[in-house]
């Protein structure tokens, strides 16, 4: 199925540290490094252990996001409820409002994985016309 019917809670690791220290963090096998800001990194899936070359780094389990996968055929519809341009090539990361709700988008293999703060997931499901949890 190309359109998911709900968002599911995502487990990740959040690292807030100096930009140069974050540049060095290695992606887990098959996972993603999502640079939310120069000093803010989201690692999916969560890391067992992590070395960051910044003694002031804050490393926390992050469970505040929910995620859903949308196939490429869904992209035009998502672009239609966004006031900014999606990247033309993947893999790519972008963040901004989707249907008025802040999201993180991981474009990959022609589709996109959308991350939304869990407290807003239900609203986004509603605005995107997803079935929602039964």
């Amino acid at each position: 199925m190309s359109a998911p019917d709900h968002f599911e809670r995502l487990e990740a690791t959040r690292i807030v540290a100096g930009p140069r220290a974050l540049d060095e963090v290695e992606s887990p096998a098959g996972g993603h490094l999502v640079r939310l800001a120069p000093d803010d990194l989201l690692v999916i899936p969560p890391l067992e252990r992590v070395d960051v070359a910044d003694r002031y780094a804050i490393i926390e389990p992050e469970s505040g996001f929910s995620a859903a996968w949308f196939a490429g055929s869904e992209l035009p519809r998502l672009q239609g409820v966004s006031a900014w341009e999606f990247p033309r090539h993947d893999p790519a990361f972008a963040q901004g409002h989707l249907a008025g709700i802040p999201v993180k988008m991981l474009f990959d293999r022609g589709g996109v994985r959308v991350l939304v703060p869990t407290v807003l997931a239900r609203h986004l499901e509603e605005r995107l016309g997803m079935g929602g949890r039964q």
Binding site: A83, W84, A94, Q95, G96, H97, G100, P102
Partner: peptide, 8 residues
Amino acid sequence: CGPRPADE
């Protein structure tokens, strides 16, 4: 992040 609407 790139160009984004003022609402964000």
